[in-house]
């Protein structure tokens, strides 16, 4: 009896053609939502005040979290790579290797994932509750373009603060690595940083920065999209925040995958 009803539930949950169509129409919606950003992003009037507020909100308030994570990542990466390099007697390569992996890949991706969690969910929840309590409608009827005021400022802020946070995480990560180096032997700070940075060139740093801007864009635009299109009812605010985090994290990995293909071309 129990089993039977469970089976029934499962068969109801099966994806039907309509839900696939639903997914595609939502994807189309998302494309036009993000397209609107490029149409509106440079057109006056500008909302400086809201933009700076969002920069503080997204950038400054994420600093403690990303610096702690960056430090731990640098530390752990160094401690764990050390033994395998030591078996080849290649410990002197350690600073360069850690710096390359942090700056090219781990720094941007970890920071973006943290931002997807922190910024994406905040945007989803804030805009979602503004939608549910009709604040977005209120802007609309008083002839204020809510997309420009709320979405454009937030996406700009995310595009700017995420790369800044990435640079910051990279720096803190290297400090973490330096601390880890000193666990086993004494290494002079100047020597550590000069060897770490000497292996880096333009092709390591520049694509990582561009990639971070794209991460920021997707985190901002997905968070705003989920919140902006929340349905009525309070539980949809939670759902908007939740789906913002999930989709934004997924987007980070997809962008990363595409970015690595593009950088390989050069």
């Amino acid at each position: 009896m129990e089993k039977n009803s469970l089976m029934n539930q499962i068969s109801v949950e099966k994806p039907r053609p309509s839900s696939i169509r639903n997914w595609f129409s939502q994807f189309g919606d998302f494309i036009s939502f993000s397209g609107r950003f490029f149409k509106d992003c440079l057109r006056p009037p500008y909302n400086h005040g809201e933009f700076f507020r969002q920069c503080i909100e997204t950038g400054y308030r994420s600093l403690p979290l990303v610096s702690l994570t960056g430090f731990i990542i640098g530390l752990v990466l160094t401690l764990q790579s050390r033994p395998s390099l030591a078996t080849f007697g290649a410990e002197s390569l350690l600073p360069g290797m850690v710096a390359t992996s942090i700056i090219r890949e781990i720094g941007p991706v970890i920071t973006a994932l943290i931002c997807a969690g922190k910024i994406g969910s905040a945007m989803g929840a804030e805009l979602g509750s503004m939608r549910v309590t009709e604040q977005i409608d209120a802007m609309e009827v008083s002839s204020i373009n809510p997309y420009k005021y709320l979405v454009v400022t937030r996406v700009w802020a995310a595009c700017l603060t995420v790369p800044a946070l990435v640079v910051f995480t990279d720096a803190i990560g290297l400090c973490g690595s330096y601390v880890a180096m000193n666990v086993h032997s004494h290494v002079e700070a100047r020597r550590f940083f000069s060897t770490a940075l000497s292996v880096l060139d333009f092709r390591d740093i520049f694509p990582a920065l561009i990639k971070s801007v794209v991460f920021g864009f997707f985190i901002g635009v997905i968070g705003c999209y989920r919140g902006y299109n929340a349905k009525s009812g309070t539980e949809s605010v939670g759902r908007a925040a939740n789906s913002a985090v999930v989709s934004a994290s997924l987007a980070v990995f997809i962008v990363d995958l595409i970015a690595v293909q593009i950088t390989d071309l050069f």
Binding site: S129, E134, Q135, D137, A138, V141
Partner: peptide
């Protein structure tokens, strides 16, 4: 337009 729930910007 006065909204039923006032719709103040929180």
């Amino acid at each position: 337009f006065l909204f039923q729930g006032a719709a103040l910007y929180d």
